[in-house]
Structure formats: structure tokens, C-alpha cells
């Protein structure tokens, strides 16, 4: 059996960026819950910033079990609203909808060029695609609270 978790690469999750109040408390809880479900040995699929998020989440969770485990760090576009980091791009909703649907189905499909234009972080997701079909996802989080599309999903294959 293989367990796979997807979390977003939000730097607000990192301890070094903690404020007195947590702006991503709900997302953090979902991430910690999902990562805690992984086995002891975890392979991380992420870009360099995503690796830091993964390292934080792995250090912050106690895990057991010998299942092959993957932690994927990636997220949708960062242009969902006028207040989003990349401002509003009308294409972002459709992009996130399509990427989200493919993830839910366990067959990630990424338009790498459009992802780059819409500031989506998909390196880890693209790596995940190469590992074959995952089956339907359990969705723990699906929202874009700051104009950036976040998902927390789990697959067991």
C-alpha cells in the first residue's frame, strides 16, 4: 500500500514566519492531520521552498507504519482575486478547477506553461503524475483564502 498527501507550499506555515495569530490555522490543522496519516519514511516531491514546508510538517507530526509514503507540496494559481499576490487573472479559476478535478480523480494533469503564468506551484504535482494512477482523493481542504488555491488531499493506492 502507498499513501500520498498533497499540501500547499504556503510559507505562512513555517515556524520562522509565525505571528502571534495564525492566519492559516485551518489550513495548518488540515496539513498536520494529513501528514500525520503518512508512514514513518516519507519521500518528498516538491520544489525548494516546498521542501521547507514539507520538512516543517514532517517534523511537526508523529507518524508510524511502514507504508510507502509520499508528501507532495504544490498548489494552484496565485491570481484568483484582485488582492491575490499575482492580482486577478481571469484564467485562474478554470485552471484551478481543472487541476483540482484531475487531482480529485487521482490523475493529475498539469499545463506547465499556464501554471507558470498563473504562479501555480506544480513541480511536486508534476512528479506525482509520473508515479501512475492514484484513485479518488480524500479532500481535507479546498479553498483560496488569500487568492491562492490550496488543497490538502490524501490518496491510498
Amino acid at each position: 500500500m502507498t499513501r500520498v498527501v498533497l499540501v500547499p507550499g504556503a510559507l505562512a506555515l513555517l515556524r520562522e514566519y509565525a505571528g502571534l495569530e495564525d492566519p492559516v490555522a485551518e489550513l495548518r490543522a488540515a496539513c498536520l492531520g494529513a501528514v500525520g496519516w503518512l508512514g514513518t519514511d516519507v519521500t518528498v516531491l516538491a520544489d525548494r521552498q516546498g521542501e521547507r514546508v514539507a520538512a516543517y510538517l514532517l517534523a511537526a507530526t508523529e507518524r508510524g507504519g511502514a507504508e510507502a509514503s509520499y508528501l507532495v507540496v504544490g498548489n494552484g494559481s496565485a491570481m484568483r482575486t484582485e488582492r491575490a499576490p499575482g492580482h486577478l487573472d481571469e484564467r485562474s479559476s478554470a485552471f484551478d478547477e481543472a487541476l483540482g478535478a484531475s487531482l480529485r480523480a487521482g490523475r493529475p494533469e498539469v499545463d506547465a506553461e499556464l501554471a507558470r503564468e498563473l504562479w501555480a506551484s506544480v513541480d511536486g504535482i508534476a512528479q506525482l503524475r509520473r508515479s501512475g494512477e492514484l484513485g479518488p482523493a480524500t479532500v481535507d481542504y479546498d479553498d483560496a483564502p488569500f487568492g491562492v488555491q490550496y488543497w490538502v488531499m490524501r490518496w491510498q493506492a
Binding site: A10, A12, Y17, G19, V24, P85
Partner: peptide, 12 residues
């Protein structure tokens, strides 16, 4: 000596 109250700018 004190973290910001709530920081999200650039960290989303």
C-alpha cells in the same frame, strides 16, 4: 522581541 500580530503578506 515580538512577532507581528498576524503576517500573511508575501507568505501565502
Amino acid at each position: 522581541r515580538r512577532p507581528p500580530r498576524r503576517a500573511i503578506r508575501g507568505l501565502q
